[in-house]
Structure formats: C-alpha cells, structure tokens
Design a protein around this nucleic acid. Structure first.
Length: 565
RNA sequence: CGGGGUGUGGCGCAGUUUGGUAGCGCGCGUCGUUCGGGACGACGAGGUCCUGGGUUCAAGUCCCAGCACCCCGACCA
C-alpha cells in the first residue's frame, strides 16, 4: 500500500478528547474515528491489525478443538426472559422493535441462543464435549464508555462456549481455553496476568480474568510477591490481622460529641482504627443493608453484593437511614431495621467501639456476636496494597490493568434454564455443564498500544502491526529515488512482505515522524544519499542502529528480520 | 444516574467579561524556492459559531430549554 493512497490521515495536534495513550495515538495515527460515544469506525490500518488479532485467536481456538460458528446479533427478547437476564442486564441491553412491534435485542453476549441450539443438537453424551466460538460484534449500552477502544458500546468479541457432560469435563475444557488464552496473548505480544475474578452478570461459580498491566486500565489486581496468588480486588482474599486478645468487658455508652467518622472516632478516643466497627449503609432491592467491617478495613461492594445474592446495591439516602431507625455517623446494628452483613474480621477482635444510634454517643466494648447478631457473616472487606496474602502470608501488591479476557465456569445455570439436557450412560437426563470464554478484540489492540508506546508513537508488536515495514522514500520527486523505491517496493511485495510505502512528497521530518507515530516494526529509507552508495537503510522501531544493506539484498534482509512472515 | 468540564472551517484553539455580524496556527489547493527529523514565500478555497426559543435596531457573545461529547465515580471483553 502506498501512503499517498491510504485512507486515514495522521494528525499533527493531539486530539482534545483523548486522555490515554492508546486513544490518542490511534486517533492521531488515523486508525480509528469516533461516530458516537463508545462507537468507533475502524479505518484501514486498525482493521488490518484487528484482523490479525482475530486470525491468531482463530488459530488458537481451532488448535484447542473449538469450532467456529456465527450467531445473530438480533434476537427476540423472549430468550432473555427465559434465562432471566433481561432483568439482570436491564438498560445495558440495546432493545429494538421489529415492524410487528415484537421486542428484540441487540445481543450483548450469546449464552442464550447458543444454549438453545445445543439443546436441539445434543441428544446424547456421545455428542459431548463441545466447544463452539465466534468472533462477532456485541452491543452493550454501557453507562459510561471511556478511553477510546478500552470501553465501548459496540465491539468485536471472540466468545467461546464449552458444553460438557460433567464438572470434570468442564475442568478440562476450562484448562484448554486457559492455555489457548495464554498463547493468544503471547502471540499478540501482549503481557498479561491471569487472576481470580468475580463473575458478575455472566454468572457462574468460578472465573479468571486476563489482565494486561497498564496504568490506563480500569481494573485493580493484587499479586502476592511470594506464592503467585493473583486476584482482582473485587474478589481478592487476604489475611486479616488478628488483634491482641482481651477479656470481653461490659457494653457501655461513651460520649463522642460531633464524631461522625472512624478517623475522628479513633483519634477522639485515642484508640487504633481496628478497635472500631465501621458501618456502611446500602439499599438493596428496597431493603436497608447494614454492612459492618472492622474499622481499619473498607467494604468491598462486589463481595457485599455477592453476600446478598447478587442484588443491585446503592448507598442509602439520609432519609432512608433515618427511616430504618439508624443514625448517620453513629449507626448501630443493635435494633437496626436492616439486613446485617458482617465481615468475618469482627470475629478477630473484641471490645470494639461502634455506633449507638444516638447522635453524639458510641458504644464501647462491643463484642461480636455477643452484643448483636448478623444475618450473614462472611468476607466483605476490600484488599489494599501491602496487605498479607491469605495463601502464604506474603505481601500483596496492587497493580492497574486492562481486562482483555475473562473465562467462566458457568455450570448448569443456562442449560437448566433452557432445559438443555442429555441422557448419560445410565440413561439419566442431566443438564449440560457449561463454560464461557471471552476476548475483546479491539480492547486487546488498545491494550497492546498502551503497553508498547513511547514518546514518538506506537510500537506495535510485529504479529499485530498493520504492516511489517514502513518504506520511506526521501526526495521522491527525483527520478532515481522514485525508481529505486518503486523497485524495492515491488521486491518486497513479491517477497510477500507487508509494506507501507511512503511515496508522499513531504519533508523528511514529516515522513520520519509519521513512521514513528505508526511505529511499524521495520523502517526502510531510500534516499539520494543511500542511492549514491547503492544501499538501503534499515532500522527497527524498537531502537538500535540503522543497518546499510546493499540495494539488491534489501528484500531478503527484511525477510530475515521478521519473525512472523 | 451523581459530580466536573467542553461545544466556533478537517484538526488544535482565541474571541463570550463590556452584544455591532468571525479570527489565529496547522492542514488543504495553485505556483516558486527548499530537502536526512513536523521548511519558506505568494495567492486562494473552506464556517448552520451544537440545536430550538427568547431579549434587542443588532446575538458566537445576554436569558431560557434541550442535545452531544470528554473526564471522575457506580458496571464490563
């Protein structure tokens, strides 16, 4: 491709709306163009990269024994009501009506349709196991799209679904997908960390995310420095420090005028935060929820939500708090008209200070469960950087990253909803055991740009760069230059090398800067200076010295530099 | 949905305070001079100033309503 013909211009100025590197660079280099919030067109350069990523995914999925198929975006709302997810997904789902006013949706994921097909096509244990996948557009009306391709409302996703006869089969399918994911990211030149994750709206009991470490990422994960434990903070378990044992003392009231926060309470009474109980008040499905954690910890809303069985959570409004008989700033679980969810850290201490439901007073020497009961006692605390590892006692450190893949053990949630069963060896009807596995293709590209860019521009990995070589001709208006560059371009094309030929009559600075901006792995320079010596100059985008190669050997030399041809 | 911000040629912005009918840089076109890290000169094209309503002799500017987009939070590949 000649740059003079390429659709998509580079921009000199930084696009104003872009904050993060991948968004800025992809706009500046002419890869993408915005259509609406969270909706982008992929221009030719981006589309080439995306197709390469898709191809790598396809090869690894096929190698893992998965079969590609294609499911529709447009689906009747009905099947989403069958699974109960019409309500779960709510306004995240784009809804449309057909001409007969039949309610339809633009699919945000495909468990429902595929399970219904599997029901019709799997009649025996002999038809299992099965892994099916597609690479296709998903629609999710995200509350807040952000960061260019990081979070969008229309995006391409590879989604795979496994169907097994039992949990052991699911384990094997899950492992196979896990390994395939590792290879996919490696081949794409992306560094990722697999972490334990919460399964969210997709459901299921067990899931892992693949996180590409990057400061622009939306996710926070913790890693153990000694045993390798890795988890999303939404899910991460950690060692809660035990506090010095004490003899339980009688409950008593203590005056705390104007004290509304744990920080103030601790300093007012001159006690450590871990001697207090923190109350955070939420409303879930119209019911008041009293979340209690030890004062030195924070509430993890995802864990709390799971403890409540997946209800929608929001902070309680002051009027609601009052209506439940609670006092803001000094809320007490004793006598509260609320579901009380206690973090298990409350069992690790004694003689706590907590609210009294009386403004200006707290209770001293509160002991759990002596003085109050909880509806649920579980882990609802949020991990923090530096906390201890629950597995080995090492130190957990926090990192930001981009979720580029997520795999789930679904179990029988969907197969039961769709009555997707099969007769086993003993002729007993059993629901198929499912797993599902997703990779966001555009997000993967954005993550790769986030991980590899420098001040001059993108430095895309060779395997997913839109072209391998940027051939630049300086002073193309000179016949000798144009002739030599055209000839080399022809040689490269004949040798099967993907090359972008910058044949524009632009100044050197413009041409070199554009080459750096797009950041193709190899840059070749044909110029009057090089022609005089009958050489071509070759240089890698990742740095190092330029090499002067005899013109006749240039195409072959370039091929030798490429690891993927 | 809550909070913050921005809408002016393709891109980046000024002009809004104090109303008088739109300007700069880049880019674009033609010609000439340049030519190894975003060159220079000359001439030129290109704008419903987000939308609707209002005030006014007159609105990019003031008032009202709405919309879009970005950023921070609650959600996800």
């Amino acid at each position: 491709m000649r740059v003079s013909n390429l659709f998509g211009k580079t921009l000199r100025d930084e696009p104003a709306e872009a904050e993060i590197a991948s968004h800025r660079l992809m706009l500046r280099a002419g890869l993408i163009s915005q259509v609406a919030s969270g909706v982008y067109s992929y221009l030719p350069l981006a589309w080439r990269s995306l197709r390469k990523i898709e191809q790598i995914i396809r090869e690894e999925m096929d190698a893992a024994g998965a079969q590609e198929l294609r499911l529709p975006v447009l689906q009747p709302l009905e099947i989403w009501e069958t699974s109960g997810r019409s309500e779960v997904l709510g306004r995240d789902m784009f809804r449309v009506q057909d001409r007969r006013e039949r309610p339809m949706v633009m699919a945000p994921t495909h468990e429902e349709v595929l399970t219904s097909h599997v029901k019709a096509n799997v009649n025996s244990y002999r038809d299992l196991p099965l892994i099916l996948y597609q690479i296709q557009t998903k629609f999710r009306d995200e509350p807040r799209p952000r960061g260019g391709l990081i979070r969008v409302r229309e995006f391409d996703m590879k989604d795979a679904y496994s169907f097994d006869a039992d949990d052991e089969g699911l384990d094997q399918s899950y492992q196979a997908m896990m390994r395939a994911y590792g290879r996919i990211y490696e081949r794409c030149g992306l560094s990722t960390i697999m972490v334990e994750a919460d399964s969210g709206a997709i459901g299921g009991k067990h899931s892992h995310e693949f996180i590409a470490p990057a400061s622009a990422g939306e996710d926070t994960i913790v890693l153990c420095d000694s045993c390798g434990y890795a988890a999303n903070v939404e899910r991460a378990a950690f060692a809660k420090t035990a506090t010095p044992p004490e003899e339980p003392l009688p409950l008593e009231e203590v005056a705390t005028p104007g004290v509304k926060t744990i920080e103030r309470l601790a300093s007012y009474l001159d006690i450590p935060a871990w001697k207090t109980i923190k109350a955070v008040l939420y409303v879930a499905d119209g019911k008041m929820v009293f979340a209690a954690v030890r004062g030195d910890l924070e509430v993890n809303e995802v864990k709390l939500k799971n403890a409540l069985g997946g209800a929608q959570l929001r902070f309680a409004a002051p009027q609601e708090v009052a209506a439940a008989g609670l006092t803001v700033g000094s809320a007490s679980p004793i006598g509260a008209d609320a579901a009380i969810i206690a973090d298990d850290s409350l069992r690790l201490g004694s003689n706590f200070v907590m609210g009294s439901n009386k403004d200006g007073f707290h209770l001293r020497n509160a002991n759990f469960p002596r003085d109050f009961d909880a509806d649920v006692v579980t882990d609802i605390a949020l991990v923090q950087d530096g906390y201890g590892c629950r597995v080995c006692g090492g130190v957990l450190s926090a990192r930001r990253g981009i979720e580029v893949g997520h795999i789930f053990k679904l179990g029988t949630r969907y197969s039961e909803a769709f009555d997707c069963t099969f007769p086993d060896h003993a002729d007993a009807l059993r629901p198929v055991v499912m797993g599902c596995y997703g990779i966001g293709v555009g997000r993967l590209l954005a993550a790769a740009v986030e991980q590899t860019n420098d001040e001059a521009g993108m430095v895309l990995p060779e395997s997913i760069a839109p072209y391998k070589v940027w051939l630049t001709a300086l002073n193309v208006e000179r016949e000798d230059v144009a002739g030599a560059a055209d000839a080399l371009y022809g040689d490269l094309v004949d040798a099967g090398v993907e090359v972008l030929y910058d044949d524009r009559e632009e100044s050197v600075g413009v041409k070199f800067n554009d080459a750096d901006l797009l950041g193709l792995p190899i840059r070749l320079v044909v110029s009057p200076r090089n022609i005089k010596r009958d050489v071509v100059e070759a240089r890698r985008r990742t740095g190092g010295e330029a090499t002067l190669v005899p013109s006749g050997e240039a195409a072959e030399y370039v091929r030798s530099l490429l690891s993927v041809r």
